[in-house]
């Protein structure tokens, strides 16, 4: 049976036209989110204050990176970041680096940007101008994440345009720093997959909390009164495998920037979901950041200074 006219020619031309080379590997393998601290209105409001020893615990457990969510926009006035807040960022970044950890500095909870990207675009750019100037010359173990979970009016296309604008301004002083970008829809998988291929040292991120009614069950702040439910059947596990396969499909450097379960979920089910997601991501070469360290989705009990054994094993064994 002969191939249709032109088909074989297309195959040959396509092969000849494409450049060789595998996608770059990302810089992050195992990362912990320092969640609910510096993205709260005031550090401590949401039940967690970062302590120096915690960075040591994280490094000793086997993580290579921490992600530091920070609500920088709430501390940005008159073209400058509040020096006290900037000093706190510097302090935590310094603690992490002293412990041998990379740091992802993540611009978190910029709600006004989600509501009205056009009105906030220049301010968003100015915030990154300020952060870029402050961290110019800093080792490239500091990674910038431009915006957490684009959503609402900050669609994938708008988020992509805005992030590209910031990257262009950052690059002269940060030529080889990894910069993390994400798509719309709360930074989810489909938004990421709708983006164009990333540029130099650009790491694509997506967040994964599927199924939502499992990972957020019993969480009072969802406003959804989600009842307890289980997880772990063959179909549940297959779905995770497919989603990670899809995430890796474009061949870009990809980071699973958040995944986790609410603390009141059944511990065995929490551990099963966490381990399944982590292994499926690693099988596809995807680095990950667990959400989060010691607050609502905790892996660590800051009161006793101990890891939750099921979550620790699911992440690291």
């Amino acid at each position: 049976m002969a191939a249709p006219a032109g088909l074989r020619g297309w195959v040959l031309a396509l092969g000849a036209a494409l450049a060789c080379g595998a996608a770059l590997a990302g810089p992050v393998e195992r990362c912990m989110n320092l969640s609910n601290a510096l993205e709260a209105p005031h550090e401590g409001d949401w039940g967690y204050v970062i302590e120096r020893d915690h960075l040591g615990e994280i490094a000793a457990a086997g993580f290579d990176t921490v992600r530091l969510p920070a609500r920088v926009d709430a501390h940005f006035r008159d073209g400058r970041i509040d020096p006290a807040f900037l000093a706190r960022l510097d302090q935590v970044i310094g603690w992490a680096e002293a412990a041998g950890l990379q740091v992802i500095l993540d611009l978190h909870h910029y709600e006004a940007l989600m509501a009205d990207p056009a009105a906030e675009a220049d301010r968003f750019v100015a915030i990154w101008d300020a952060l870029g100037a402050h961290y110019a010359g800093h080792p490239d173990t500091l990674i910038f994440e431009l915006v957490n979970e684009p959503t609402d009016a900050l669609t994938t296309d708008r988020a992509a345009d805005l992030q590209a604008r910031v990257i262009a301004r950052l690059r002269p002083a940060h030529p080889d720093r990894w910069i993390i970008t994400s798509g719309g829809g709360w930074g989810g998988l489909d938004g990421m997959l709708d983006m164009a291929p990333p540029g130099h040292r650009e790491l694509r991120s997506f967040h994964y909390y599927d199924p939502w009614d499992f990972t957020h069950q019993l969480a009072p702040w969802t406003g959804q009164d989600l009842p307890a439910r289980g997880w772990g059947g063959a179909e549940d596990r297959a779905r995770v495998k497919v989603d990670m396969f899809r995430a890796a499909a474009p061949g870009w450097p990809v980071l699973l920037g958040e995944f986790g379960t609410y603390r009141d979920t059944d511990p065995a089910a929490r551990a099963a979901w966490t381990g399944t997601v982590r292994r499926a991501a690693e099988a596809q070469g995807i680095g990950w950041c667990y959400w989060g360290f010691a607050a609502d989705f905790r892996a660590f009990d800051a009161g006793t200074g101990t890891w939750l054994p099921g979550i620790r094993a699911a992440l690291l064994d």
Partner: peptide, 10 residues
């Protein structure tokens, strides 16, 4: 789910 790569590029 299917991926087609050419010389390692999706």
């Amino acid at each position: 789910t299917r991926i087609l790569r050419i010389d390692g590029q999706t």
